[in-house]
Design a protein around this nucleic acid. Structure first.
Lengths: 319, 319
DNA sequence: GAATTGTTCTTTTCCGATAAAAGACAGTAT
DNA sequence: ATACTGTCTTTTATCGGAAAAGAACAATTC
């Protein structure tokens, strides 16, 4: 009948890392800031560390008595927040099969199977609904729209609109904008990853997200920035269940990113546009290739969205 | 400790209207369909109507005994759903003054002042967050971002992108698409409203929303369609508190709509583009004019968003 | 006297319970 | 045979309460 203490447990685990690395711990407010929790939680952590004999704690003095070992850590199942637990569980069902579009979602059943209260599930579904994969019937159940080809196409359409615009805005950023320094840093990381690609190619997706978020940030538009959450969600879960051809896919994307970065640095709108489009096109094709081919007639939207991309908008300044 | 019975009360009131108009009532399933509620609720309504002597109810026979009077209706406060109550209350505070950007939102306080449970407020805030006016701090409070100039600009930017694309898609719709018939109907309604504008100009906003939703629907993209919810919310609440110049504003918009509709019917992409842009530009200007001029330096995004619109994207097919 | 600690109060997060509303199914009327 | 009604089951919407986490303030320490 109360919230779980995962915040404490998760912060405790991270704090063990800090202790192991430094041999002692900073002041309570400072620890709170680095761990991203309140001082109340910090003091709970310190209390337990003192209790288990990891440190001696007397006011300002927190010195390590022994190095933390594997047993000191809380198991990972206990450090996840409720929403993470629900999200993962839900996405597994969604992607790991048997989730037909049109199927209805039962809050109570979902809550019982995951082992949480209904409120948590409800709130998750409301938050999740903005991804466009589920829909609520008034005073009734939720309906699964499914991870379909048409979803992928609609997503790609918006992404392309937003990212082309963001990339153009990025190229127009003043010389002294901190984004340029961050771009240099990311470029270096791309090169570093490329050199050790054989062993580290799995790290690419994290770099990918950081790069695209940086670009989107240049739009200075909250709707564009927020929309990247949808893309990130899709990539995160979708590719987690679909590791086929991961290495090649990432290798291609990495090269495209480097060309894209070079184009941004040139500040030439035409070059930026071309490099961005090239990358977006391959991202879309890759995503579509991994969505199982479905009966198109059952998805009128997909057909239309595909034809949509052929429509030529009259040239002109954006409004 | 349970849900309110507003669904029943609201449906009951609408059913009184049906009864008054027709003199008798259809079958239970049919009534459920027209009122948009389940048969369980329909039977509750019929039971009360029989009890209060409005009808005699015996199986299939439901005949009116007396015409419904004002006293038969439930008061409007009791027919609103919890989320409507919370939304209105929240928007009133947001727009009716004293809501500074950066201010923090207290769930418990809000719940107490509105007289509802915390769960309802929480769920409302989560749902409302997609409008980009509030933001959540992890494990902590919500922060009000405010109905600022920069919000209006960011909103307008996306709206323009989406609507230009939707309008182009609309013009490319096949001749036999039902949207064309609906467009004809809306055009006729525009003309009818225009003829009686002096007395009925307040009805324009409802027509406005239906027209724009029809256009957006042609995109066949759920993200574009859903985004219109944001615009509709803004217009609904903002203009509800800002009636200054309403008649002129609506008159201009009505004429622009007629030109826009004519352009769509011409199916000429260049004409569609021009008419759509003209209308969007005046909609943006009108909205901006009604947002109080604020300290631009405190809102870096606003400045940038305004310069953004000057950037000329290289012409080319959409990806 | 500025930062840190000790203490207390507030707010968020979450669960279980319950009435309203939806939905299912069998029986009955046309 | 089809559509409607009567009855029963399932599911959703909402509240109150309790523990965890945050935040504020007073008392120390360097």
């Amino acid at each position: 009948m109360a919230r779980g203490n995962n915040v404490y447990k998760e912060a405790y685990n991270r704090c063990l890392g800090l202790l192991g690395a430094a041999g002692s711990l900073a002041s309570e407010p400072e620890l709170g800031a680095t761990l991203g929790v309140s001082r109340t939680t910090v003091r709970l952590i310190l209390a337990r560390m003192a209790e288990t004999g990891l440190i001696s704690w007397n006011k300002r003095d927190k010195t390590m008595l022994r190095a933390p070992c594997a047993d000191d850590y809380f198991p990972t199942e206990e450090t996840d927040s409720l929403s993470q637990v629900i999200e993962r569980s839900f996405m597994r069902r969604l992607l790991a099969g048997g989730a037909e579009p049109g199927m209805q979602i039962n809050e109570l059943e979902l809550a019982r199977e995951i082992g949480v209260g209904t409120t948590g599930v409800r709130e998750f579904l409301i938050r999740f609904s903005r991804f466009g994969l589920i829909e609520k019937r008034r005073n009734s159940h939720w309906v699964l729209k499914g991870f379909t080809r048409s979803f992928a196409l609609e997503l790609a359409e918006i992404r392309e609109m937003f990212e082309l615009r963001s990339a153009a805005a990025f190229a127009a950023l003043p010389q002294d904008d901190p984004a340029w320094a961050e771009l240099d840093r990311l470029e270096a990381e791309h090169h570093a990853l490329g050199r050790a690609f054989a062993t580290r190619f799995g790290e690419f997706s994290e770099l990918d997200e950081r790069f695209h978020r940086l670009v989107h940030g240049a739009s200075l538009n909250r709707f564009i920035v927020d929309f990247y959450d949808v893309i990130a969600m899709v990539f995160h879960y979708h590719y987690q269940w679909n590791k086929a051809g991961e290495r090649l896919r990432n290798e291609v994307a990495l090269q495209e990113h480097l060309a894209y970065i070079a184009a941004l640095k040139s500040r030439d709108p035409a070059k930026v546009y071309a490099a961005c489009r090239r990358h977006l096109k391959s991202a879309r094709d890759t995503l579509l290739a991994s969505v199982p081919e479905s009966d198109i007639s059952a998805e009128p939207a997909a057909k239309h969205a595909e034809s949509m991309r052929q429509i030529k908008l009259p040239a002109g300044d954006p409004v």
